[in-house]
C-alpha cells in the first residue's frame, strides 16, 4: 500500500526552551486547533492551562478501585466467617468490622493503586506499540532536551502553509512533516 505509507500524519515544530514552547502552545490553542499536542522531556509547569486541558480523570479510576477494594475486603471476610464456615472463636461475634478493617484497608490501597495506574494507561491509550512520531529521528530528542508541538493533518484547521506560518511566528527552530 504505497499510498498509506506516504500519507502525512502531522507537522512537528521543535523548540529549545520551556518558555518558548509554552507561548507557542498558547498561540496554537488560541488559533482554535483541536488535534494537537505538546511533547516535553518532563511535565512543564503551566502547560495544562496553556493547552486548555481539563483536570485529569484518573482520580475517578483510583476512587472506584478503592471502593471496590474496601467492599471486597469486608464482604469477603463477612462471607467466610459468617456464611461459608461460621466458627465461634473466644465467644466473639462471627463478624466484626474492626478486625476486618486492616485487611480491607490494605485492599483499598491495593485496588486504588491498580485503579490509578490502570486509569492512567487507559486514558493515555497506552501501551501503544506503533506511533508515527517514534519513527522520526529528530523527535527522539524529546526525551533528551527538546520540546515539540505536533499539529495533526486531520485537524479541520490544518493547512500546510498557514500552520507552518503560525508555528514559525511562535518562535520554533525547526519544522518537519511526519508521515503515517
Amino acid at each position: 500500500m504505497p499510498d498509506a505509507l506516504t500519507k502525512p500524519y502531522g507537522m512537528i515544530a521543535e523548540f529549545i526552551t520551556a518558555n518558548s514552547v509554552l507561548h507557542a502552545a498558547q498561540a496554537v490553542r488560541n488559533a482554535g486547533f483541536r488535534k494537537w499536542d505538546v511533547f516535553t522531556p518532563f511535565p512543564v509547569h503551566g502547560m495544562d492551562r496553556a493547552m486548555g486541558l481539563k483536570n485529569s480523570k484518573v482520580g475517578w479510576f483510583a476512587f472506584l478501585g478503592g471502593v471496590a477494594g474496601y467492599t471486597t475486603g469486608m464482604l469477603m471476610i463477612w462471607f467466610m466467617n459468617t456464611v461459608d464456615y461460621p466458627i465461634v472463636i473466644g465467644g466473639k461475634p462471627m463478624f466484626s468490622p474492626f478486625s476486618a478493617f486492616p485487611p480491607s484497608y490494605e485492599l483499598t490501597i491495593l485496588f486504588g493503586a491498580f485503579g490509578s495506574l490502570g486509569g492512567m494507561l487507559f486514558l493515555n491509550r497506552l501501551p501503544r506499540l506503533h506511533n508515527p512520531l517514534l519513527k522520526n529521528k529528530r523527535f527522539s530528542l524529546v526525551t533528551h532536551d527538546r520540546f515539540f508541538i505536533l499539529i495533526e493533518c486531520d485537524d479541520p484547521k490544518y493547512s500546510e502553509v498557514e500552520t507552518r506560518k503560525l508555528l514559525e511566528e511562535a518562535g520554533c527552530r525547526h519544522i518537519e512533516l511526519i508521515e503515517e
Binding site: M47, D48, L53, M120, N124, L126
Partner: peptide
C-alpha cells in the same frame, strides 16, 4: 516504555496518577 512520547496530554494524567499513588502509599 509502553510507547511513551512525553505528550503533555499524557503527562497530565501521569502526574495525577503519580500524586494519587503517593497519596495511597503514604497511609500504606
Amino acid at each position: 516504555a509502553l510507547g511513551w512520547t512525553g505528550s503533555n496530554r499524557h503527562w497530565s494524567n501521569y502526574e495525577k496518577a503519580y500524586l494519587i499513588l503517593a497519596g495511597l502509599s503514604t497511609p500504606l
